[in-house]
């Protein structure tokens, strides 16, 4: 249904209310339906025609779809939201309008959710570079946006996309604690400004993929002209290991994973923001674990991430811990 027809329908509906006939009759007694009654401004009753539902007032449709969206917060039941989005173009537009980003609502919906950060509150020797084939929508941090591959990084992405935007660089330091200590990670998040964890800061939140089917009519974004480096909204966010404490009784390094990690492993880690003292970030914020990853069984791991990381970035960082690192162990 076209927007025009919705508007037309809506207008007719409002006119309908306006033309409700009012006659000066005191309602002291019941008027039987046989009583003659003259109402010049009354539209004759017409049987409801086929197709009227296609022109439901948009705000009513919005209401119904919003209720569908609100009632299913978990997968796989939430699939119904995507079904609403695939009914027709206008339903897709309405659904996309309703669905909030994970940062706002904590829920994953469209695939683009994986590129968006989850909410603030609900969380409880080798160099790797994470590439993305698309830039984050609001251009962010400093220089090296489209790095060429001459750094010989290991590709986290299985295939090489046409455009490579470097979103993060992960380096594993030589183990400062010598043998059997935890690994030291250093993640430079090129696409996330450090200001994102400051009061009122935001992380780049793309709301759709370029070349998305819906956007066919809009001009496709020119990727090469919008690299990450276009604006300079501050330095990149750097993540570092949360320092483990030495447990005297167990004679090992320990981190509190709040029950989410149960098996000791060299791959277990928690990352917090590494903030320069000159940058104004509350101490509580610096203590917050932004990404944690660890083993719970043979070949089974859990990953917990939070704002400002996206699922994509978090997953890529975790993947890097699977590569054997003779330099670190």
């Amino acid at each position: 249904m076209s927007f025009k027809s919705i508007v037309r329908e809506l207008k007719e509906m409002k006119d309908g209310i306006g033309s409700m006939s009012r006659r000066g009759v005191e309602g002291k007694h019941w008027r039987s339906r046989t009583r003659s009654f003259i109402a010049p401004d009354v539209a004759p009753f017409e049987p409801i025609e086929q197709g009227q539902w296609a022109n439901l007032p948009p705000e009513l449709l919005l209401d119904i779809i919003r209720r569908v969206e609100e009632s299913e917060t978990a997968w796989p039941a939430r699939t119904v939201v995507l079904f609403c989005a695939s009914v027709c173009r206008s339903w897709r537009d309405i659904t996309k309008e309703i669905v909030k980003t994970p940062e706002e609502c904590g829920r994953l919906t469209f695939p683009i959710s994986l590129k968006q950060g989850p909410p603030w509150s609900n969380f409880l020797g080798t160099k790797f570079t994470i590439y993305d084939s698309q830039p984050p929508n609001d251009a962010t941090v400093q220089h090296n946006s489209r790095q060429s591959r001459r750094f010989y990084p290991k590709q986290v992405s299985p295939k090489l996309p046409a455009y490579n935007y470097s979103v993060a660089t992960i380096s594993y330091e030589l183990n400062v604690l010598r043998t059997r200590g935890p690994r030291r990670m250093h993640c430079m998040m090129h696409s996330i400004p450090v200001s994102s964890i400051q009061e009122g800061g935001t992380a780049p939140t793309p709301i759709s993929f370029p070349h998305y089917i819906d956007d066919k009519h809009s001009s496709s974004p020119n990727l090469s002209s919008s690299p990450l480096s276009t604006s300079n909204s501050g330095t990149a966010l750097v993540l570092k290991n949360k320092a483990p404490r030495w447990h005297e009784q167990l004679q090992c390094w320990c981190l509190n994973f709040k029950g989410r990690v149960t098996v000791a492993s060299v791959k277990n880690f928690q990352l917090v923001a590494a903030v320069d003292p000159s940058v104004d970030v509350p101490a509580a914020e610096q203590e917050k674990v932004i990404l944690q990853f660890g083993k719970i069984g043979k070949d089974i791991f859990t990953m917990d991430y939070r704002y400002p990381l996206s699922a994509f970035q978090a997953f890529a960082i975790c993947l890097s811990s699977f590569d054997t690192k003779p330099a670190c162990e």
């Binding site: 249904m1 086929q50 197709g51 009227q52 539902w53 296609a54 439901l56 119904i64 569908v68 009632s71 299913e72 039941a77 119904v80 079904f83 609403c84 695939s86 009914v87 027709c88 339903w91």
Partner: peptide, 16 residues
């Protein structure tokens, strides 16, 4: 509407 096919929704709302 939950657990209904997209085709069902289209039919019920007369959506082309």
């Amino acid at each position: 509407m939950k657990n209904k096919l997209v085709e069902w929704v289209r039919r019920e709302f007369d959506i082309q």
